[in-house]
Write a protein that binds this DNA or RNA. Structure first.
Length: 259
DNA sequence: ATGGCACCAAACTGGTGA
C-alpha cells in the first residue's frame, strides 16, 4: 500500500496537476494539506471519477485538509481535540480495513508559528502539546497508526540547506524541536529517515530561486507507530513534481507498506 | 538581503505562508 502526504497549496490552483499525478501514480491513500477550500467547494467529483473516496475538513481561504483513498473509509474524525475554541481546520483522520486488520491514518497541517513574537508561535506550541496527547492516546490502540502531513518542522541540520540561516525560525528552534522530539519519543518512526540519510528536502520556497539553488527544507513527514514501522518497505520523495508547471512549493512524500 | 513569489478573497491591494 502506497500512502502519500502532500501540501498542495490550494486545491483549485492545483487540481489539474493533482488529477494528472493521481492517474500517473495510482497511490492508494493521499493526504492533502492547505486545500484552502470549504467542503462544498472541494472538487470531489473529479477525484471520485478516478476511483477515490474523498473526505474533507475544509475552511474558507486558509488551511484545510483532505484524505483521498481507494480503500473505503471505515471511520472519519475531524479536528484536534483539546481546545473547543480552535476553529482552524488542520486535522482529519481515517480508519481503513486491510487484510491484516485496521490502519489508522491521521493527516495534519501543523501551524507554521511565524513570526515568533506574535500569538502565532504560542498557538503552534499549544497545538503541538495537544498533538502529543492525541498521539499518546492513539498509540494505546497498538495498531498500525500513521501520523503524517506538513509538520512545519525541520528535525535536524541535515534537513535544511542552511542551518545557521534557519536557526531561530518557528520551524527550527528549541521550543518547537523539544515538542517534536517528545512526539517522536512516544515511539514514532520517521519513515524517510528509516530508509535514507540523504537530506530529502520536501519544500522549496517560491521566492529567491530556492528550487534552482536547491535551497530546500524537509518539513513533510510520515511518523509511524511500531506496528506501522514493522510494515514499512520503502519511502520516496516525489521531487520531480517541483519542476512541473504551476507546482506547489511542497512535493508529495510517500511511504510504502506491506499492508 | 525581511525582499523576492504564489495563493486567496475580492478590489485593482492586503493577509498569509515558510
Amino acid at each position: 500500500m502506497r500512502i502519500v502526504t502532500w501540501n498542495i497549496n490550494g486545491i483549485k490552483a492545483r487540481l489539474e496537476l493533482l488529477l494528472a499525478w493521481l492517474e500517473q501514480e495510482q497511490p492508494d491513500i493521499v493526504c492533502l494539506q492547505e486545500i484552502k477550500s470549504v467542503d462544498e467547494g472541494f472538487p470531489r467529483e473529479a477525484i471520485e471519477a478516478l476511483g477515490y473516496n474523498v473526505e474533507t475538513h475544509g475552511q474558507k481561504s486558509w488551511n484545510g485538509v483532505a484524505i483521498l483513498s481507494k480503500v473505503p473509509f471505515d471511520d472519519v474524525q475531524r479536528g484536534l481535540p483539546g481546545d473547543d475554541t480552535d476553529e482552524q481546520a488542520r486535522l482529519i483522520e481515517g480508519v481503513f480495513s486491510v487484510p491484516s486488520g485496521a490502519v489508522r491514518v491521521c493527516n495534519i497541517y501543523l501551524p507554521n508559528g511565524n513570526p515568533v513574537d506574535t500569538e502565532k508561535f504560542p498557538y503552534k506550541l499549544a497545538w503541538m502539546d495537544r498533538l502529543i496527547a492525541f498521539a499518546q492516546q492513539r498509540l494505546t490502540f497498538e495498531e498500525p497508526f500513521i501520523l503524517l502531513g506538513d509538520f512545519n518542522l525541520i528535525p535536524t541540520p541535515v534537513d535544511v540547506h542552511d542551518p545557521d540561516a534557519w536557526w531561530g525560525d518557528a520551524l527550527y528552534r528549541p521550543e518547537s524541536l523539544d515538542r517534536f522530539r517528545q512526539l517522536a519519543n512516544l515511539g514514532l518512526t520517521d519513515a524517510i529517515r528509516a530508509m535514507t540519510d540523504e537530506p530529502s528536502y520536501t519544500f522549496w520556497d517560491f521566492q529567491a530561486g530556492a528550487w534552482r539553488r536547491n535551497a530546500g527544507i524537509r518539513i513533510d513527514h510520515l511518523m509511524l507507530s511500531p506496528q506501522a514501522a514493522d510494515r514499512l518497505e520503502g519511502s520516496l520523495v516525489h521531487k520531480d513534481l517541483r519542476a512541473r508547471d504551476k507546482p506547489s512549493d511542497h512535493v508529495p512524500v510517500e511511504g510504502q507498506f506491506s499492508f
